[in-house]
C-alpha cells in the first residue's frame, strides 16, 4: 500500500495541471494577504500630504461656492438681505485632514470571517479541481485499465489515489494557511497590533478546520469523478448545484436553509454560521405567545456542519469506491 501511495504521489507530482492548481492555491493566499496588508496599511506622510491636498481643494471649492452664493443669492435660495451670513452657513462645512485619512485597521480576529473565508473557499475549489483532473485524466486516457493490470486490487488503488489526493490537498492547505495567517500576524505585530493569545488559538483552530474542509473538497472531487468517470460531468454537476442550489432552497421551506451547503461549510470553518428566516406572523401581533420562536437569526453549529459533510462524503465516497470495485473498466 505504501508503494502504491508513493506511485500515486509521483503521478500527482508529474501532472502539470495539478501543479498549476497547486501553484495557484499557494499564490492566492499570498495575493489576498498582500491586498489586506495594503488595504489596512498605516497612515503615512504621503497619505497626510494627499489628504491636505484634498482639504485645500475642498476649501477652494467652498470659498468659490460662498462667493457665487453672495453674488447671486436667489439662485441658492438665500435672502439677498442676509446673504453673507446665510451663504456662509450653507457652505459652512469646514474640511479637516482627518476626514480624508480614514483607513481600516488590521484586526486579525476579524479576518477569520472576512478574508480567510475567501482564502478557504478559493483553495478548496482549486483542490477540488485538482482531485477531479488528477483522476479524470486516468479515465480519459484509458490508462486506468493499464494500472489495474499491475495492481488488480481495486479498493487498494481507489484508496491509494484518495489518500494521495488528500495528502496533497492537506499539504497545500497547511502551506497556504500558514503563509496567510503567519503573514497577517507578522504584519499586525509590525504595526504594534499584537493579537492576543486567545486570538492566535482561535486562528490555529480556524486553520485546522479550514485544512479539513480543503482536504475533504479534494477527496470529494476525486470520488465524484471516479464515480462518473468524467471530469466534465463532475464540473457540470458542481456548476449545476451552485447555480440551481439557490433556486431549490428558495422554493423549500425556510427550515431547509440549515442544509444549504455553503452555510454548513462556513459553520465548519468559522465554528458557527448564521442564516436568516422570516419569523411567523404571530410575532408581529399585539400578544406574542411566550413559546413562539420569533428570532429571525438561526445558527448552524460546527457539529451540524461537520456531520452534514461527513454524511455527504460517506455517501459519495462509498458509492465511488463500490462502483470502482464492481464496474467494468474500459
Amino acid at each position: 500500500m505504501t508503494g502504491l501511495l508513493r506511485v500515486e504521489l509521483t503521478r500527482l507530482r508529474w501532472r502539470r495541471a495539478v501543479l498549476v492548481l497547486v501553484g495557484a492555491a499557494v499564490l492566492i493566499p499570498l495575493v489576498i494577504l498582500g491586498v489586506r496588508t495594503y488595504d489596512t496599511r498605516p497612515v503615512g506622510d504621503d497619505d497626510r500630504a494627499a489628504a491636505q491636498q484634498q482639504v485645500d481643494a475642498e476649501l477652494a471649492y467652498i470659498e468659490q461656492g460662498i462667493a457665487d452664493c453672495e453674488q447671486d443669492p436667489r439662485a441658492y435660495g438665500v435672502d439677498p438681505a442676509r446673504a453673507e451670513r446665510q451663504c456662509a452657513r450653507q457652505f459652512g462645512y469646514e474640511p479637516r485632514v482627518e476626514d480624508f485619512l480614514y483607513r481600516e485597521q488590521l484586526v486579525v480576529a476579524r479576518e477569520r470571517s472576512n478574508s480567510a473565508l475567501a482564502v478557504v473557499a478559493i483553495v478548496a475549489a482549486l483542490m477540488l479541481l485538482a482531485g477531479t483532473t488528477y483522476v479524470g485524466h486516468d479515465w480519459n486516457s484509458g490508462s486506468m485499465s493499464n494500472q489495474l493490470l499491475f495492481e488488480p486490487r481495486r479498493l487498494r488503488v481507489w484508496l491509494a489515489k484518495a489518500v494521495a489526493v488528500a495528502l496533497l490537498a492537506a499539504s497545500v492547505a497547511v502551506v497556504g494557511l500558514v503563509v496567510f495567517w503567519g503573514g497577517l500576524i507578522l504584519v499586525a505585530q509590525s504595526r504594534d497590533l499584537d493579537p492576543s493569545g486567545q486570538v492566535v488559538t482561535d486562528v490555529v483552530q480556524h486553520a485546522l478546520r479550514s485544512t479539513l474542509v480543503i482536504t475533504a473538497a479534494s477527496v470529494f472531487g476525486y470520488a465524484l469523478t471516479t464515480l462518473s468517470r468524467s471530469t466534465v460531468f463532475t464540473i457540470g454537476v458542481l456548476f449545476a448545484v451552485s447555480v440551481a442550489g439557490g433556486l431549490v432552497f428558495a422554493l423549500l421551506p425556510e427550515s431547509a436553509l440549515r442544509y444549504e451547503p455553503s452555510t454548513n461549510a462556513v459553520a465548519v470553518v468559522n465554528g458557527r454560521a448564521e442564516y436568516w428566516v422570516q419569523p411567523p406572523e404571530a410575532c408581529y401581533g399585539q400578544r406574542v405567545p411566550d413559546d413562539l420562536d420569533c428570532d429571525e437569526t438561526k445558527e448552524v453549529s460546527v457539529q451540524h456542519g461537520t456531520a452534514y459533510y461527513a454524511v455527504l462524503m460517506l455517501l459519495v465516497g462509498g458509492a465511488s469506491a463500490a462502483s470502482f470495485r464492481r464496474r467494468d473498466i474500459t
Binding site: G3, R6, T10, R11, S143, Q147, F150, E151
Partner: peptide, 12 residues
C-alpha cells in the same frame, strides 16, 4: 519512460 516507471514502481 515516466509511464513505464509508474507501472514498474507499482509492482515494486
Amino acid at each position: 519512460r515516466q509511464n513505464l516507471l509508474l507501472l514498474s514502481r507499482s509492482i515494486g
